[in-house]
Amino acid sequence: MATYFTLIGFGPNGWGWQLAYATFLTLSVSACAFATGLGFGTLGAWAKLSGSAVAGRAGDVYTTVVRGIPDLLVVYLFYFGGSQVMTAVARMLGQQGFWGLNGFMVGTLAVGIVSGAYQTEVIRGGYLAIPRGEIEAARAVGMGRLLMLRRIIAPRALRYAMPGIGNVWQQVLKESALISVTGLAEIMRQIHVGAGSTRLPFDFYITGFMLYLMLTTVSGFAFRGAEGWTLRSERRA
């Protein structure tokens, strides 16, 4: 047990600092991917709700395709396909050599686009749950589209969508482990490297379990708090 703590501790032979930095990287790449996903999700929900046949079809294709194929393939697409595209663009601009996206960008884009598809449905559901009368009332008092979005639609939809958004965050956090295939030294990658170089795989993978559980649990509490905040005007006895 004592050797375990020197192994993962912050001492000279410990992996503590690497693991702490890896945790920070997992958190930041997840946060970026989550934000990207919120953007794609909002766009997707808007496309599906716009009433335009073309936009609606595009939204359907996006959610169906992305939710039907493994996330690992999407990561490969951006990792290898990204360098394919970047190198071609660089050649067009007269630059020689190999160009590619780094692991962080690949992760943000790939996990962002995947979570955006789930987010689309969550946000769409949130919007559809707003009682029509409230939107009519906002129109009746003369609110413009933007003002109505800011004052009525966004806060109301958020209230209904918040539990779903929390689920998507948990999913993003766990999916970020797939970015390890690009070599980005987030938790999964760092754990794997540590396991290989110390020949103590079990100790490292168990540490990985604890790090992810810590992240999912703490952020779960944070989202529950946020949920309470969006419901603050609806508290009942």
Binding site: A195, R199, P201, D203, G208, F209, L213
Partner: peptide
């Protein structure tokens, strides 16, 4: 535990970890 951790990590624990 199983829902709070990535599946990839679970596969690695079983494949690489318990052989220790």
């Amino acid at each position: 535990v199983l829902r709070g951790t990535p599946l990839l990590l679970q596969i690695f624990l079983i494949y690489y970890g318990i052989g220790q």
